[in-house]
Computed example of a mutant assay.
Amino acid sequence: MSTQEAGERKLRPGRTNATKQKLFEASMELIGERGAAGVTVDEIAAAAGVSKGTVYYNFGSKSDLIAQLLRHGVDILLARLLSAQDNSADPLEAMEHMIGQAMDFMAEYPSFARLWVSENWRTPSVWQNTFAELRTLLLEVIGAAIERVAAKHSVDTSISRGSLETAIFGACFVVGLDRQTYHPERTREQSIAAIMAIMRGYVLK
Score class of each variant (00 low, 15 high):
residue 143 G to Y: 09
residue 144 A to P: 00
residue 144 A to F: 08
residue 144 A to K: 14
residue 144 A to W: 06
residue 145 A to F: 04
residue 147 E to N: 09
residue 148 R to S: 11
residue 148 R to C: 09
residue 149 V to F: 03
residue 149 V to W: 12
residue 149 V to E: 07
residue 150 A to S: 12
residue 150 A to H: 06
residue 153 H to C: 06
residue 153 H to W: 10
residue 154 S to W: 02
residue 155 V to R: 00
residue 155 V to T: 14
residue 156 D to N: 15
residue 157 T to S: 00
residue 157 T to A: 03
residue 157 T to M: 06
residue 157 T to L: 05
residue 158 S to M: 11
residue 159 I to H: 02
residue 159 I to L: 14
residue 160 S to A: 07
residue 160 S to W: 10
residue 161 R to S: 05
residue 161 R to W: 05
residue 163 S to W: 09
residue 164 L to V: 04
residue 164 L to K: 00
residue 167 A to C: 08
residue 167 A to V: 02
residue 167 A to T: 12
residue 169 F to C: 06
residue 169 F to I: 10
residue 170 G to L: 05
residue 172 C to S: 13
residue 173 F to A: 05
residue 173 F to H: 11
residue 173 F to Q: 01
residue 174 V to P: 00
residue 175 V to H: 09
residue 177 L to H: 05
residue 178 D to N: 03
residue 178 D to P: 00
residue 178 D to S: 10
residue 179 R to Y: 11
residue 180 Q to Y: 11
residue 181 T to P: 00
residue 182 Y to I: 01
residue 184 P to R: 12
residue 185 E to C: 01
residue 185 E to S: 11
residue 186 R to T: 06
residue 187 T to K: 01
residue 188 R to D: 14
residue 188 R to I: 05
residue 189 E to Q: 13
residue 189 E to G: 01
residue 190 Q to D: 10
residue 191 S to C: 15
residue 191 S to W: 04
residue 191 S to M: 08
residue 194 A to Q: 15
residue 194 A to M: 13
residue 195 I to V: 15
residue 195 I to Y: 04
residue 196 M to Q: 02
residue 198 I to K: 08
residue 198 I to S: 02
residue 198 I to L: 13
residue 199 M to A: 14
residue 200 R to F: 06
residue 201 G to I: 04
residue 201 G to Y: 08
residue 202 Y to R: 03
residue 202 Y to K: 01
residue 202 Y to A: 04
residue 202 Y to D: 00
residue 202 Y to T: 01
residue 202 Y to Q: 02
residue 204 L to N: 11
residue 205 K to A: 10
